[in-house]
Nucleic acid binder design. Structure first.
Lengths: 213, 213
DNA sequence: TTAAAATATGAATAATCCTCACATTTGCTA
DNA sequence: TAGCAAATGTGAGGATTATTCATATTTTAA
């Protein structure tokens, strides 16, 4: 009745990759697909997003959608990748010029504010990073992104505390980063006022850890 | 073609509740269903868990499964509820007798260790709390659980620092708790050694926040 | 001009969740 | 104990949706 001897779970199979659009026409259509997906995720969440609806709203056939995205997750991944690229640039810029403890404190505080506002304003980003735990590929992307972001922080810390154990600084930066994301996620899922207080508390904790010691 | 005027997204509809098993026979069968679900989640994750497979492994028909669980999420919720009940008892016990800062430090440290070991040892628990973001009902359960756990911590803090603003203490406790869960999730998704260091770093940060100030 | 490559299409396939009409078992009362 | 109502058991089939594929069209490049 079932598969006679399936070596892997069907859900784990990796979809065959698709060609990247090479012509102007298809590049535009892919953009429309991503825009449609983004809008639908904002409206209903990525779980409720239907492939047929994405195609319809983008004005393409369902077949065209699958011409460029091997499966549903690939669309979400593509959107996620854009967000990571954007935010990394922003973080890198914010931390690049930091040269003393005071500067770090200020830059970090601003960064948290920016991220918090971003989380509040971007339902798509929120949705994608929420689903991160369920999807291995997405989880890897998020971890890689988090590590990259932590890297910027680590670089600053190494500059400020040359004597400290580099591995410990890396751990600290990575943890602070991940906790920040957790704090944001928590903050947006409770009442606004409590959310603000949670983010403020996180900021205080993180700054204490970053500056002291 | 589509629904003519669907007032709610079909995915958001809440499944009709089911009768609780009242006879000995059915209670045993429900136990078997939960055990089967648990085993399958441990093997493949809750997303890959198939209702048909749960029924088959439990030795019941698919219809019987739906007799007691309105939908797939309900099974996962039932398992989640058991874990929360168990862990709350454990946390309450660990923090109940704390009366001074040193005791809090010790109790908290032990609690983190216990949780970390639990996370490492229980793939089902891990899986369920991971999927928490995607499922509104589960997310609510997790938040409620987290609040309840933070409550124990808050109670201790209020005892130790009667002068402090109670709302601030609550926020602190809640945040520390959620961050702990984030740290655990992170720790188990990286190499063991790095995970250990991350948990240790979290412990240090959290203790500093709990004891100082 | 024309053949090859790229792209477009949507009916058909496949995998699953879940329902429902009907069968069986249990608990209870006369 | 007979007999009935409630509880429980069953699995074929309805419904939804991701994904494929044979085929048609458009673009590129020689």
């Amino acid at each position: 009745m079932e598969d006679t001897a399936a070596p892997v779970s069907p859900r784990e199979q990796i979809a065959s990759p698709r060609r990247a659009p090479s012509q102007q026409r298809s590049r535009e259509r892919v953009e429309r697909m991503l825009a449609a997906a983004s809008a639908l995720i904002a409206e209903q969440g990525s779980d409720a997003m239907r492939m047929g609806e994405v195609a319809e709203r983008a004005g393409v056939s369902i077949g065209s959608l699958y011409q460029f995205f091997p499966d549903k997750r690939a669309i979400i991944w593509a959107l996620a990748e854009r967000y990571t690229a954007e935010s990394q640039a922003c973080i890198s810029a914010a931390l690049a010029g930091v040269s003393d403890a005071e500067g770090l404190g200020r830059a970090f505080s601003e960064l948290v504010d920016i991220y918090y506002r971003l989380f509040q304003a971007e339902p798509v980003m929120r949705d994608i990073w929420s689903g991160t735990q369920a999807d291995k590929a997405l989880r890897q992307l998020e971890l890689a992104d988090s590590r990259a972001n932590a890297e910027f922080l680590t670089a600053v810390l190494k500059r400020l505390r040359p004597a400290a154990d580099p591995a410990a600084l890396e751990t600290t930066a990575f943890l602070i980063w991940q906790m920040g994301e957790a704090a944001m996620r928590l903050a947006i899922s409770v009442k606004r006022q409590e959310g603000d207080r949670l983010v403020a508390a996180y900021k205080r904790m993180a700054r204490r850890e970053l500056l002291a010691e």
